[in-house]
Structure formats: C-alpha cells, structure tokens
Design a protein around this nucleic acid. Structure first.
Lengths: 199, 199
DNA sequence: AAAAAATAGTAATCTAGTTTAATATTTTAC
DNA sequence: GTAAAATATTAAACTAGATTACTATTTTTT
C-alpha cells in the first residue's frame, strides 16, 4: 500500500471514526485491504446480472442504483453521494447475480472493499465488523422508513419530503430521475411542482 | 437460568446453528442473557411512542408490526411467525421512541434479547455479533426487495406474489390485514381474488 | 455559434385503485 | 345456541396518477 492510498482513504477513516475507534495499525491494515478507483460520468460500477464484488464508499461524485423491469422501465432505488455507500448488498453477501445497476451520474472517486478481503478484514479488526453492522442497521432503518412513506404519503407529499430533506441531491440530479426514485412519472412531477409554486 | 430456559431456547439455538457454530458454554451463556415470555392474542409487544427494549425471536404464534398514520389509518409493515424476528430495529438501536406497534395476532411465545444485555452478549460471544449482522443483512435485502416490488408490480401482481410465496401466512391472517400489508384496500383485494378465480 | 441531444412543461384522455355504502358471511362470546 | 362482533363481498361513483403526444427549454457537442 502506498502513501497515496492512505491519503485517499482519509474521508473514509474520518467517517469510520464517527462510529468506532481504530488504532493506527488497524487503520494501516484497513488501507492495505481496500482499493481506490475513479469512474467517469456514465460509467457503471455494477451491472444487472453481474455479481457484486465490492462494497463502495463514495469519496466524491454521485451514483444511482436502479433496475430495469420486464417492461423495460427503469426504477431508481437509491442515489448515493459523498460519505455514503453503494452496491447491491444482497448480491455481495450471497455472491449471486445482482438485480441492480449502479451508474455514475457524475465523475466519481470511490473506495472499494473487495469481497475476498472483507472476511480477513473482519478477522483482523473485529471492531470493523461492529462498524459494518451499524451501517447496515442504518440502511435497513432507512429502507423501512421508505416503505412506510410510500404507503402513507401521496406523490405530492413524497416530493415535498425529498425536497426538504435532500435539497443538495435534488440540485444534482435531473428531475426525471427524481420522479423515478419517488415512484411516479416525470410528467406528474412537473404538475406537482407547478401546483406547489402558485397558491 | 433454569433448565426450563434452556428448553425454551432450543428452536432459537437450532436457528442460530444454521448461521454460526457456538460452543456449549457459549450457548449456556447466551441462554443466561435472554428471556422467555408468553403473550395472549391481541397483546402488544411494542407500542408506537414507546422505546423498543428488546429484540424478539418468535417461538410460536404470529405478530403484525404496523403504524397508524396522521389520518388514523393503520399500515402493516410486516408479519412475523415462528423462527423469525420482530421489533422496531431503529428504536432498539437508537433507544428512541418507536413509530411502530407490534401486536400478537395469535397467542405467542417469544424469546427476548434485552437492550442492556446485548452489548455484553456481543462482547462475550463475538460470533453472535456476526450472526446478528447476517440477520440484519437478510432483513435489509428483503426490505429493498419489497420497495422494488411495490414500484414495479401492480396490486394484483403483488397479491399473486404473496399468495405463492407465503401461503402459510395468508391462511393465518384476515384478508383485510393482508390488503393493508400489500398497500391497497380490502375491497380491492376482494375484487382481485374474484378476478383470479373466474377466467 | 449552430446543431443535436437531453431535459422539462403542458394538456387531454384514460385507468388502476379508492371511497362509500350496503349486504352477506363467518367467528366469538355469553 | 343465539346475539353480537368481526370479517368479507359487491357495485356505483370518484380521483390520483399514468399515458400519449406535442412544444419549450437547457445542455452538450462540434
């Protein structure tokens, strides 16, 4: 592992420090097990049908995770930006073909945890296993919350919620992708935004 | 801990053995940290607004987890039966008031992991932390899958999927609760079932 | 700077699912 | 075993959001 790799990992280490405390040796060991990589806008980190071989931590940029249904329609499941994760966890943990694509909406820098090294990482740094458990707990809670909101809120209310909760994301993505994420059509989002402006 | 407690924990230990291997001392230690308890039909394991103090493993019976929205409408988030878990994980891990209720649809026997002992459990048996990570991974993947299905499938298709995937659950719960879980009205479910019978 | 491609807006028509309201059936309680 | 409560069915009227099809605007490419 190079000095460069340690340099790239800084935002990740800061992020991990919010959850668990690692010794300096542990941080060095961690950095020896992970990869840094850049993607161009439009490039795929993962494609539907492939097995997810890494967990990605995003240093810079923005990605969408989506799947294409039987009618050829694209459905966006999540957006990820700096200091968050992306990958199909289901495919990663079971090493089976993924239902999802992950594509970069901007040029992006990521840190990748390869499947082959993650078990040895957990063995070497048990605190890291606790860290991952907490990250997954967070993701699960967010996922549950999303199910609830889709059930109990109207399309308009879902948009308003996203708008107030993630203004930085809304500014970075095209509107038609937001509509896909929120579960309705781009035409309807146009209508909703117009209504919200006039009263 | 009594002999009785070990006896009650058997289905849980069998379940855990599918994921990780514990030594006999570890199994005894685990049993010393958990509680067995019975609930009557209709009783609440958790109420909206309370802090979730336990993770529940179900030995027998059936529960629903639901929340009541601002319009007073009940939305069912999940059903749990034998050999599965229930509780509001978000409330449990952050020890904040829950958005959910968990109510028994049948008389139920459960094993409870209290919040105060779960950290010491993980310290004493690190393999158990791995086990919980895997369980949460599973739950997260299932939750993601549900979001996808709600977006890409029609109400009719969602019913068909549930019907073929969880026939044992469908038989144990009233239809109007299934409609709530699937995200549409009981009247519409009646209509869908009728359509599916005739062709 | 022009052309092409991508994104956004508008409006009419259509439909999956809701609402309301009433009746029928099954389960539970005494 | 009967009354009451809970659950299920049906059907007409209604609505949130989809579809279609076209125009306007913004961004990217050359």
């Amino acid at each position: 592992m190079t000095m460069k790799a340690m340099e790239h990992a800084k935002p990740l280490l800061n992020y991990i420090r919010k959850h668990v405390t690692l010794s300096e040796e542990e941080e060095v060991f961690l950095c020896s097990k992970i990869d840094y990589r850049k993607y161009l806008k439009g490039q795929y980190i993962l494609q539907q049908g492939d097995i997810s071989t890494t967990q990605c931590f995003i240093l810079s940029g923005c990605t969408k995770m989506f799947f294409v249904d039987n009618d050829g329609q694209e459905h966006i499941v999540m957006f990820s930006i700096e200091d968050w994760w992306t990958s199909d966890l289901g495919s990663f943990v079971s090493q089976t073909p993924s239902d999802f694509n992950v594509q970069c909406l901007e040029a992006s820098e990521v840190i990748q945890f390869p499947y082959e090294t993650i078990e040895s990482l957990f063995e070497g740094i048990p605190k890291l296993e606790r860290f991952f458990r907490k990250i997954i707990e967070q993701a699960f809670v967010a996922s549950q919350k999303r199910i609830i909101q889709n059930f109990s809120l109207s399309a308009k209310e879902r948009y308003q919620l996203f708008h107030s909760k993630y203004p930085q994301i809304e500014q970075r993505i095209p509107q038609y992708m937001l509509a896909s994420y929120l579960g309705f059509t781009k035409e309807f989002l146009s209508k909703v935004k117009k209504e919200l402006l006039k009263p």
